[in-house]
Design a protein around this nucleic acid. Structure first.
Lengths: 351, 351
DNA sequence: TTGAAAGCGATACCAA
DNA sequence: TTGGTATCGCTTTCAA
């Protein structure tokens, strides 16, 4: 035994290819390919022989070779701002589950507000047969670029772009309901915590709130731009309560984490929710239930699942159809529902 | 204008390839490749010409072509059971963030307890340069198969496998601390809600609890196999409280969702936590704070981040090094910490 | 500095 | 039914 040779043999482990299987089975690579893909064009005997050879060599076909030849990735992607908080995780979960069932691998990309997000999204585009893009992740021109390249696309929780499917959840209308509810409970001075510029959803909620308050004969809410996490909610609340002048009697938050931050900060001051101050959130995250937070529930799982389903259809159409007229652009707004708990001053025992 | 031709032109949109860029720029494809990848082997003039041509044609290099030629995917994967609950989402987030920073795309795969999980994982293996596998997703033999194929691998929250890196969080020791804490508060009759067979983590927690109680001179806990979600916790609690005989005075749960389920079910009976019954969870999810739940915090983000970092190192080593001796197998157990809140009977004002 | 051509690992067409 | 071979789109020697 020559040690030098043994050493060499271990370096750069090459994967087993279809050629080796062919040689071992004594057939051509074409036959191997057919045998392994259950083509009816091979004798049972040959197929078994090939199978055995593949088995012995522990052959796993290269995805790259396959995809290049087939002209498809059998994978698709989803782009979201971040995975912090339950909201995006739920959407991604709904997406992954459906996509996997439909035979696609799933690539995820969290942009984290990075400046080079566009480049990352473009890179992702080169790895998939289609992708879903959520909220405020990339600018419209990037979406246009990708759409122009004819990559199947679905937009989530984002303003529509011409020619591209879009799914959103209802913001304005339910926010108006929330406003009406607050008005009924006698709240007059309403503050909104959230940055409408940060996300289309937030903007919609503020718009609906404003409209709802107006309809109840109340003044527009004071909007205070705030991040979407707990800490932002706490900080904003501390600043707000430290201000001189009349205290607001209701704080409507852009999402539940902010509202829970408010909850914590208010608790620390000795003020009581909802007696001294009403607080509401949005999303109905798991924790909202335990904090008794009035909020708005939205079908996050379904949002992701629908996106995956639509995307699948677009991809299938893209790959199969020869004639051009693609079916009409789809738009859908999923319903949301007001979830009343203690924090808004209601006295229903609902939990 | 001939409509027929125009129609035809629209079907099967072919992507722009390097050949067209080459033709347009009046150079060879080799030069295009070099120019676009900032090789020092091209004149500035040529490079600019190529760049311009690429720009005009809106050329995006094919990932498949590139990867096939380079022999790497520039992508890696993470396998987890599900994305339900905050735990896995956090781990995946930590993973994605680091992996993206290191230039890898991320493929996710939730096995959802499917029977064909092994096949899915094997498929994933053919799409990545390395992968992280969490908890109870696939059997050890699948892990062995993948490891044998020399695909870089990191195991998460899972018993070690020979030759493969593993990262876990501390279970036994902290569970024993928890037991001691409960004993101090005078709890004697302890029930454990969770299925040790379901996950190595759960088994570790039960083992630590048992050891801790024994050390305090108390009998072993009664273990009731339970799922890991809220509903399972509620159901188990209802059954437990309906049983005749002495009620337990502490329920230790395998994770926070179960504990919060207990919380809800107990609340519905009119019993009071912690006066009538102590309850503890595990994970310190966001909601635990608002439910006043005593639990154990673990660094989920860091778990994912570390996995991504280790995997990156393994991949780099795998692709670059010629000589064989790979560096030693790594094992790490990340620390966890007891988070005492109201639900265990402590009277600390901590929130 | 540039170009021709040999891979990379499959699929699928066309003959045999 | 099988085999030979072109093809997918790129990277990277090897020559010029």
């Amino acid at each position: 035994m020559r040690p030098g040779v043994a050493m060499k043999a271990l370096s750069k482990p090459k994967a087993v290819t279809i050629y080796e299987v062919a040689r071992r089975a004594g057939v051509s690579i074409a036959t191997v390919s057919r045998a392994l893909r259950d083509s009816s064009l091979v004798t049972e005997a040959t197929r078994d022989r090939v199978r055995a050879a593949a088995e012995e060599l522990n052959f796993r076909p290269s995805r790259l070779g396959r995809s290049l030849a087939e002209g498809r990735h059998a994978a698709n992607g989803i782009v979201f701002p971040d995975l912090v908080g339950p909201y995006y995780a739920e959407v991604v979960l709904g997406y992954e589950e459906v996509a996997a069932d439909l035979g696609h691998s799933v690539l995820i990309l969290a942009t984290h507000g990075r400046r080079d997000a566009a480049a990352q999204v473009l890179d992702l585009a080169s790895r998939v047969d289609g992708m879903a893009i959520m909220g405020n992740t990339v600018a419209d021109d990037v979406v246009h670029t990708i759409a122009a390249a004819r990559l199947p696309l679905v937009l989530l929780a984002r303003p529509p772009v011409a020619g591209v499917d879009t799914i959103r959840t209802r913001n304005e209308q339910t926010a108006a309901e929330l406003a009406a509810h607050l008005a009924e409970h006698g709240h007059r001075r309403v503050v909104f915590l959230g940055d409408p510029a940060a996300s289309p959803d937030v903007a919609g909620r503020l718009a609906g709130l404003t409209a709802g308050l107006r309809a109840a004969g109340l003044p527009a809410p004071t909007a205070i731009p705030t991040g979407l996490d707990v800490t932002s909610g706490e900080d904003a609340t501390r600043r707000l309560l430290a201000r001189r002048g009349r205290r607001p009697d209701a704080i409507v938050c852009a999402n539940d984490e902010v509202a829970l931050g408010v909850h914590l900060a208010v608790g620390a001051t000795g003020l009581h929710i909802p007696t001294d101050l009403a607080v509401t959130g949005w999303d109905d995250v798991f924790a909202a239930r335990f904090a008794g937070l009035t909020t708005v529930g939205q079908p996050m799982r379904e949002l992701g699942a629908t996106a995956a389903r639509w995307l699948h259809e677009r991809i299938a159409q893209h790959q199969e159809e020869e004639q051009d007229p693609p079916h009409a652009v789809r738009r859908r707004v999923l319903p949301t529902r007001l979830v009343v708990r203690r924090s808004c001053g209601a006295h229903s025992p609902e939990v």
